[in-house]
Write a protein that binds this DNA or RNA. Structure first.
Lengths: 148, 148
DNA sequence: AAAAAACTTTAGCCATGGCAAAACCTGAAG
DNA sequence: CTTCAGGTTTTGCCATGGCTAAAGTTTTTT
């Protein structure tokens, strides 16, 4: 039970992990609604087939996830018909896309190649706080300006 | 089936998400081995109780996860005794800690407060590629130098 | 050495997100 | 107007990571 001076304080750390676990819960939802929104914008409708192809999962998996989104009021659809977003879903999609953009642009600004920036931002966007996003935006602008 | 010019190419995006799902699989392992390593360093041993307290989960959950780590050869322990890391586990802990540091330092350098940097880096470290980590390190040094 | 406290393990439950395979609609071609 | 290809849904299966509650060991206290 030796009292240490290091930062192994249960409370702080535990809280951080709890936040991360919560984030995980919404991550999937965000990714799906963002994709659905993109699909609707680009081709007028979102089909299960396309969703599963883009997410890289089987249709069964996509169907299950969409059922959850529906249950949670983010998505609407009638059997065998294409998928729509509710207002909440649209809002979530927009916020997710914006965060995604900020992180992606930042990574590009600091010299990360397109592919990698795409992959990294996809993973990181969900874990960046507003504070961090703001800082990234600021930095991105700064870097791009300096280049002029 | 209208062919679009936008970047909704299944393959690229699907691959990115696949990578993220893989990352998720190792995230938990990394967080646990890092914590176990810290505990051993700081108090000489890692007990289930401490692990669960720091991760903010019940001991049952921690026990289950540690059983998986054991199965995967990252951790060693005898019933009712404390927990050790294998070589692999130690290696993973060190790599995780290093990535964590890089992200944390970077966030601090761009002005994020300690608490937030702690939380954000905990979530982001798992999704930053080597390329991004290298860029963060470079930027951190740059920022700190400019301040001198 | 017995009793109490502290810790670990186990059992059983739940939701999520994977999968494969089968059953089921819908809409185009014939 | 029937067929059949292509989507969609459903059904079961698995692992993970949560939880509570109960049972089993150590360790400490009395």
């Amino acid at each position: 039970m030796t009292e240490t001076k290091a930062d192994t304080r249960p409370d702080r750390r535990a809280a951080a992990f709890a936040r991360i676990r919560d984030a995980h819960q919404t991550e999937v939802a965000e990714d799906y609604v963002e994709l659905i929104d993109d699909l609707i914008a680009e081709r007028g409708e979102a089909r299960l087939v396309d969703v599963s192809a883009h997410m890289g999962v089987t249709h069964a998996t996509a169907a299950k996830i969409i059922a959850r989104l529906k249950r949670e009021g983010l998505v609407l659809n009638r059997p065998y018909r294409s998928i729509f977003l509710t207002e909440d879903g649209t809002r979530m999609a927009n916020m997710a896309r914006q965060r995604h953009r900020v992180v992606f642009d930042f990574l590009r600004a600091i010299g990360i190649d397109r592919e990698t920036a795409e992959a990294d931002s996809e993973g990181m966007e969900h874990h960046a706080s507003d504070q961090t996003l703001a800082a990234m935006e600021r930095l991105t602008a700064e870097i791009l300006n300096r280049r002029t």
